[in-house]
Design a protein around this nucleic acid. Structure first.
Lengths: 219, 219
DNA sequence: TTGACGACCGACCGGTCGGTCGGCATTCTA
DNA sequence: TAGAATGCCGACCGACCGGTCGGTCGTCAA
């Protein structure tokens, strides 16, 4: 009947709006983006945006949902696998790296979505609720993976919530760090070689930090 | 003669403006904050803000400078010490944790300052330049510490820029994670016990990840 | 007593914000 | 061919934005 995100309604304009809005929200934040700018870059009149989305917050929420869903899709195999926790951990981090690396705005948008809670009125909460649910889902699965690894004796006995927080920060921040990160790296963040090196480095870093036994493995 | 930031001019109002602006910028971002709101919370008329700061970007820049300078002050002893790199590393991370923990808005403001580059016009660059310089200084010192530790054989042979990025993300993100972080923790972020636990966990995490030899130390 | 000065204010400016409204094509349906 | 959606648009609205302006008030030095 109504908006069926995926194929029906207008397959072109709606997706284009989401793409443009995603890039702009990531670069300038919710308050820093004007719908007139979004519309102009898509090639539509501003009022046409309201045909596809009831308002700015809804557009922002849908953009965020799309980003997180894409990441969850990448992490699913790591969570569903049944091997040793160390391997699932590596697969999770690699999947997260890949998801963030192949879609530049994702990391910034993700971190921003954590910061910009206080910008929305209480009446907007139901609109944002699905996003919060998705975040809670993925962090819950990560915590479960860590708990399992500790129970199996594969990981040190760390505080699981703190470890989840550390992993999120260590992985996500890098792809959101922009110019500051590139100045630290001395080169681009999203080049093929940089992405590959980052994946290797951060996976080893977290692996080494969590695994109890001395030998980090065959890698 | 004119504005001497520190003690002269109006010791009260100017500091109050900076305090209020810091909290608001951290919570809502540069674009999300209105000067009218700042003025109202300080208890001044909006036009009085322009008496102390030439404009919004200058206010933002000075707030950011103050935050980063406070952090650098905390890290100084770690950088100036001359003991083993492992101890300096621990001291650096603990200092960073303390600085971020005792001043709640700091972490969010810090991360935001990385994200909100694209919000400012080229003409604002000279105003923001001191902030970038301070960030470059502290990241440079951290990189130096890591390089030294590797040269001494105390740390694994990691990619130093990546390790710096990982440390920043692992430490800073947590104190900026807000409601999401508290949902993951299952409790407050800035309570005394939470801060102490976090400090211990993240220090051990990074220490374990970087140090080649097994024993993480006495702490 | 005077006069310069810093802190402060209300009123106001041009411009931009998110959002609304009525209407114009095109296309699908019957 | 009637008619109902659908996608889109320009014009418009009230609210709010950062910033300016002219002026008031208390303080302090001469």
């Amino acid at each position: 009947m109504h908006t069926d995100p995926g194929t029906s309604s207008s397959p072109s304009s709606r997706e284009k709006i989401l793409d443009v809005a995603e890039a702009l929200f990531a670069a300038q934040g919710f308050a820093g983006v004007s719908l007139a700018d979004v519309a102009a870059r898509v090639g539509l009149g501003k009022s046409s945006l309201f045909h596809h989305f009831p308002g700015k917050v809804s557009l922002y929420a849908e953009v965020s949902e799309r980003v997180i869903e894409r990441i969850i899709q990448r992490l699913q195999p790591a969570f569903e696998a049944s091997g040793p926790a160390t391997e699932r951990l590596d697969r999770m981090i690699e999947g997260l790296c890949d998801a963030l690396a192949e879609h530049a705005p994702a990391a910034r948008l993700l971190l921003r979505s954590l910061f910009e809670d206080h910008l929305f009125a209480p009446e907007d909460e139901p609109t944002l609720a699905p996003v919060e649910a998705l975040v809670a889902k993925v962090t819950g699965l990560a915590a479960e993976l860590l708990r399992d690894g500790i129970a199996r004796g594969e990981f040190r006995e760390v505080s699981v919530p703190d470890a989840v927080q550390t992993v999120i920060g260590a992985v996500v921040y890098h792809y959101a760090s922009g110019e500051v990160g590139e100045k630290i790296l001395g080169g681009p963040i999203f080049s093929a070689e940089s992405v590959a090196r980052r994946r290797r480095e951060v996976t080893t870093f977290i692996h080494t930090a969590l695994v109890a036994s001395p030998a980090p493995g065959k890698a």
